[in-house]
Design a protein around this nucleic acid. Structure first.
Lengths: 153, 153
DNA sequence: TAAATCCCTATTATGTCAATAGGGATTATT
DNA sequence: AATAATCCCTATTGACATAATAGGGATTTA
């Protein structure tokens, strides 16, 4: 039930780009510094996100990355599915990454039914939250004084 | 966002024991056959579940395993937490398996806030569903004709 | 006493993950 | 034209986790 470090880095990097949406491109080095992400590792991840159509890049001196689409158009679900794979806790309830499991009768497996509910709950959140939402939250959290934050989570 | 094979085996084995709750003990071999689980691997898992207090065993000829508590008393959350660890998608939002992440400001991390929501959604289901619920579902699914099952998921 | 079980530890094979390495291609600036 | 700064691409590594196997020991029943 875990997101890999790679997936987390991808979201953190996209958040930086989303916060700079409309401005100039952002260098890998900058993102790496701001977010404590190993630069070379981040290179791979950002490059991979181009295949998703989430980011685009400019090469050469004063090059960098920016979002290829408006932030309200990029969901967490699409990002995680692209860099990690299934959102479902077991692949036998996954829509796009389905694999048969080793249980004797999949159609009558009660565990599968529960796992399908878990999947739905996760997907519902991840498909609904966009990079624009993350930006909103980030800005709201930025304004909140430290003493308030203790009570939010 | 994935359950390991080990965790899946644990639940499948416990389901078998729950369906036989009140009867005699069940041999590893029987569970292994019914559920297509490698016997030696299953040994380790069941033994580990004793530490959780979920199962107890009788040794020797005509030995085997049975639930140590009523099935309505054993939640999926407790099982998965014991054999796998955190239910949370990232450890910085985990209650019992908390670990600080590498992001610059955890208290103001908007990603963390979303991940906390995902955690809540998963925990809500996993803490509520017990082995007794799985038994109910199993029996209901057993009665359903094949043609109905196509429409359930 | 023999057979069937659970019990325990060690080992292995495989794969994944996170990161590093090393250079190539492109572009802006001087 | 030269230089420096960036992105681009592939390969490799080291560490770790996972899934399983192996081999015997302890216990109980028949």
């Amino acid at each position: 039930m875990k997101l890999s470090v790679r997936g987390e880095y991808a979201i953190r990097a996209l958040l930086v780009l989303a916060l700079n949406y409309g401005d100039d491109v952002v260098r890998i080095q900058t993102i790496s510094d701001q977010q404590n992400i190993p630069k070379k590792f981040l290179e791979q991840i950002l490059n991979d996100l181009k295949a998703l159509g989430a980011v685009e890049s400019r090469r050469g001196a004063s090059g960098g990355y920016r979002l290829a689409r408006p932030p309200q158009n990029i969901t967490l679900a699409s990002v995680v599915r692209h860099v990690e794979g299934a959102l479902a806790p077991v692949s036998c309830v996954s829509d796009r990454f389905y694999e048969r499991c080793t249980c004797p009768d999949e159609a009558r497996c009660p565990i599968r039914a529960v796992m399908a509910e878990v999947r739905e709950a996760v997907v519902k959140i991840m498909e609904q939250v966009t990079l624009a939402d993350l930006c909103d939250r980030a800005r709201r959290l930025q304004r909140a004084p430290q003493t308030m934050l203790d009570y939010i989570i």
